Amino acid sequence: MENWTNAKLCDVANLILGAILFFAPWVLNFDAGMVSTNAHIAGLAMAILAVAALAAFAVWEEWLNLIVGLWTLVSPWVLGFQGTTAMTVCVIIGAAVAILAAIELWVMSQNPPRLTTHS
């Protein structure tokens, strides 16, 4: 049961991080265009995946969270907005989401959930 609680806490953290990333362009005045759009899409994806994971846990949600987190982490270099506030926000939030997803995947590999029920 403890792993389930930890998984839910990670998903709630991902939801909060996704919301922060989604609203960051307005709050922190990111450049309009690709920089803001990237933050909006990545933040929305993180939040949707977190809500889906809270509703019904599935391994694929954690893999997608890992991918979105890693994309957010490297996006400043791919899209060319290094040295900006947007870069700092994307790197910190992307790293946090990727680390949380990796931890959840590792914990699940160490202690897989039971797929059978007892009568």
Rank of each mutant, 00 (worst) to 15 (best):
E2P: 04
T5S: 12
T5R: 11
N6A: 15
K8Q: 09
L9N: 08
C10K: 04
D11F: 13
V12I: 04
A13Y: 05
A13M: 09
N14K: 05
L15T: 02
I16R: 01
L17F: 06
I20Q: 00
L21Y: 07
F22M: 09
F23G: 11
F23W: 12
A24Y: 00
L28C: 06
D31C: 14
G33K: 13
V35C: 08
T37G: 11
N38H: 05
H40S: 08
I41A: 05
I41D: 09
A42R: 03
G43E: 09
M46T: 13
A47L: 04
V51P: 01
A53K: 10
A58F: 08
A58V: 08
V59C: 07
V59G: 10
W60F: 06
W63E: 02
L64P: 03
L64A: 05
L64T: 08
L66T: 10
I67P: 00
I67F: 03
G69V: 08
W71T: 12
T72D: 00
L73M: 09
S75D: 08
W77S: 07
V78I: 08
L79E: 11
G80W: 03
G80C: 03
G80P: 11
Q82A: 10
G83P: 08
T88C: 14
V89W: 02
C90V: 06
G94A: 04
G94Y: 00
A96Q: 06
A98Y: 02
I99L: 15
I99F: 14
L100M: 01
L100Y: 03
A102S: 10
E104M: 12
L105A: 08
L105F: 02
W106P: 09
V107Q: 10
Q110H: 12
N111R: 13
P112C: 01
P112V: 02
R114M: 15
R114N: 15
T116D: 03
H118G: 15
S119G: 14
S119D: 14
S119L: 15
S119F: 15
